[in-house]
Design a binder for these strands. Structure first.
Length: 171
DNA sequence: CCCTGATTCGC
DNA sequence: GCGAATCAGG
């Protein structure tokens, strides 16, 4: 009998195409739950917007149905006011992401003794996912989460970018 | 015109 | 399974 079985088609052939791994999917889910747009998620992970949308669709993680979220855009332009005279590209976001290296890990050791399953989650428990869905050890953080928050203090820092977002609150 | 997300379709 | 192209809505 042959020593090598041809059953192996491509196991270690993935040298420069890691594509979507559990970690990326975890980031995808976390950012998705954090309320980030597909474009923001894409820029953060390092893939295109369509890639994010495609993966989300494949995971059946679409937000309800069709488009209806981005309407929050400030499209109300005054007639006497010039349009965005500043570069309105998303370079601000990219700069924020690439420049956030000044605060890598602000959170200390997050208590992982309270991790629980999905069914054990409650309103005041951190819903930060541990491992990946489908894994044998998949669970949630379970630490105490502030009122209205989805995550505990430590995981909130990871889920929501603390970087200074340029908020031009002009009225 | 710009933006957004969702689906389609070739790879 | 992946993502660019395309579609559809605002």
């Amino acid at each position: 009998m042959p020593a090598l079985s041809p059953t192996y088609s491509q196991t270690s052939a993935q040298t420069s195409s890691p594509t979507w791994t559990d970690e990326r999917i975890a980031l995808l889910r976390q950012h998705f739950e954090a309320g980030l747009s597909c474009r923001e998620i894409a820029a953060d992970i390092g893939v295109s917007r369509n890639a994010v949308i495609g993966k989300l669709s494949r995971l059946n993680l679409t937000r309800g149905r069709t488009v209806d979220d981005r309407k929050t855009h400030d499209r109300g332009l005054a007639p006497g006011r010039a349009r965005r005279a500043v570069p309105r590209l998303q370079y601000e976001m990219l700069a924020t992401i690439y420049g956030e290296t000044d605060a890598p890990v602000v959170t200390g050791p997050i208590d992982e003794a309270n991790r629980c399953s999905l069914l054990e989650l409650s309103e005041n428990r951190c819903r930060w996912p541990i491992s990946s869905p489908g894994e044998d050890d998949f669970c949630f953080c379970g630490n105490a989460a502030p009122d209205g928050q989805s995550y505990c203090a430590g995981h909130s820092r990871l889920a929501y970018r603390p970087s200074s977002r340029i908020r031009a609150a002009r009225g």
